[in-house]
Design a protein around this nucleic acid. Structure first.
Lengths: 338, 338
DNA sequence: TTGTAAGCGTTATCAA
DNA sequence: TTGATAACGCTTACAA
């Protein structure tokens, strides 16, 4: 019962271990007849190559690192799902690691990690994917990596992403299509690349629709529910208030909904609210939130694929664009008649 | 720069590789002087033992598996945090794996996994921790495991858990202390062990307080928000309605809150609502939900510890009890005057 | 207390 | 197209 080794398989198939190795790795130059003989022995013994031995002897470890700063955000779970699914197909495994701290701590953690365990590649989740020090160490050690939705350093290495600007554009266009002419916007945290992209998309869409951009309909925010509430207060307490509010993320949109409720403004009859992210809660609040969904799982699948089957061509694109999803739920409707 | 091996360290410290090995593994019978000489070399070269080589040669792999059915639930992230923290201290790493499916699929997945990679131990999260087939395979291969909050098979192997019955008892006592005499209860999904424990604790507390248990104040549920809404309808539409409702989990409590809002019953002024789990949303709804918090992170720390330093004593307890937390927030208050 | 030598289960080298 | 044999970096016996 104790697991068999390559020697057992070789003995049973009456070939050398090298031939078994060739078959297991799908190498060429093996006669079909031999291949089949080996496969039969493999099946019979339920042989599975030992990952540690492979890692030690060969150039592959069948281990892929997934680095995050914190495992709680829902996109981490999504990414995990995608990465695990793709890895399982290919016989790879996910080593999940938490990385954080100032440059010194971080560097030490990462160096220790990389020398202790050889990884065939690494998937970098936000915000780790935006750390210069991480990229520097990985580059230096020639550990392949793919970043998920990075917000900067786009020339540094391969990444998968979605177009925040276009998503914000489309969401705004959706509101316009519903008939809204007075649309408010709550910006994300200053300094975050996503903040400016989303804001940009919003403005482009208003311009394209020939709508006015009133300064007091654009409020600052920092991606927290509190900031969403504050921004909503500002916009809704005024005489000339918007009929729809586009918050740069879901948390702020929930803040808007809370304020609307307090002001006895019915959503969506009197005020449409839309967000960005599709947080799990978006389906729990009432009305459910119209929002943008990042294809996080697909991104992780893609990232894992890039690491498992590295694209040898020199012309491999640095960034792979994946489609977002505009999720229409109940929180946005036609504007009230005036 | 390319990572150094044990030979480099031995050469630099002018000792044999065996001595280096002894030092790295904290073995006894090494003179302090030697130990220090080795340590200096280790520091100088920033040497870290290669995990694959250790795994192949020795009895430890420094790999701990974390098995879940789905990575999304918030307790998975919590457990991940705990396990990663504990593992990092000890130089271990977390291999996270998704396991699911019918007996055949599941068995195949697990067997493949276990023969491919040697793990020093495995942490089993719900609901995987309650699968006979999982325990059977692990037992058979003598892979150490610790289950987190299992709901059955308590004699089969070590586990960490919290006392659901006592938690439900305490929560009920909390409502009684606030002055409630008419308390409704929504049961969890039939068949789940937690359902009966929680129900049991509730009943014990009512008895202890000398309060009546009215049949129509106890409603069935299945842990979904919908079932919570249905149960709340039943209880609140009647003349003689409870002043407080204890839902067996947070999702159902949210359902209760939604119904209360629809019926224009103010929470907590006219109706107190409490839940169980401390889901992330519990802090987002308004009023915030009074609930019970499982010490999931601590459980995972404990579980990892048990695997890293296996308790050799024969008297090792099968189950380690950890304290829950009763989190008092705004959704429960004193009952309305009649 | 220290060191030598033999594996661990693969892949890589190179000859057949 | 195949196969002996030497790594890979470490732990484990066992000897000194």
């Amino acid at each position: 019962m104790s697991s068999h080794t390559i020697n057992d398989v070789a003995a049973l198939a009456r070939v050398s271990i090298k031939t078994v190795s060739r078959v297991m790795n799908g190498e060429a130059h093996v006669r079909p007849q031999m291949r089949e003989r080996v496969m039969r022995a493999v099946e019979a013994l339920k042989y599975r190559p030992n990952i540690a031995a492979r890692s030690l002897a060969g150039s592959r470890s069948f281990l892929i690192g997934l680095f995050c700063e914190h495992p709680s955000p829902s996109y981490v779970a999504e990414a995990l799902r995608g990465a695990m699914a793709r890895c399982r197909e290919a016989g790879y495994h996910i080593l999940i690691e938490q990385l954080w701290g100032d440059k010194t701590t971080f560097r030490q953690q990462l160096e220790t990690l990389l020398t202790a365990v050889k990884m065939d590649g690494v998937i970098l989740l936000p915000p780790v994917c935006d750390r210069d020090d991480a990229l520097e160490i990985l580059d230096q050690r020639a550990v392949p990596y793919v970043r998920i939705a990075p917000s900067g350093q786009l020339k540094r290495g391969p990444y998968v992403y979605m177009d925040d600007r276009k998503a914000a554009f489309d969401m705004t266009a959706h509101l316009v299509r519903l008939g809204h002419k007075k649309i408010g916007f709550i910006k994300g945290r200053a300094g975050h690349a996503s903040s400016s992209w989303r804001h940009d998309g919003f403005q482009k869409a208003l311009l394209a629709a020939g709508l006015k951009i009133k300064p007091h309909w654009i409020q600052p925010g920092d991606y927290t529910m509190q900031s969403g509430m504050a921004a909503a207060e500002q916009m809704l307490r005024q005489k000339d208030r918007p009929t729809a509010i586009f918050a740069s993320n879901d948390d702020m949109a929930f803040g808007v909904m809370a304020v609307a409720q307090r002001l006895k403004l019915k959503v969506p009859e009197e005020l449409s609210v839309v967000g960005f992210d599709d947080a799990p809660i978006a389906q729990v609040v009432w009305p459910q939130l119209t929002t943008i969904r990042q294809p996080t799982m697909k991104m992780a699948v893609q990232a894992a694929s890039l690491l498992i089957q590295p694209d040898k061509s020199k012309h491999a694109p640095k960034g792979e664009l994946l489609d977002f999803e505009l999720i229409v739920r109940g929180s946005a409707g036609i504007p009230p008649r005036t």
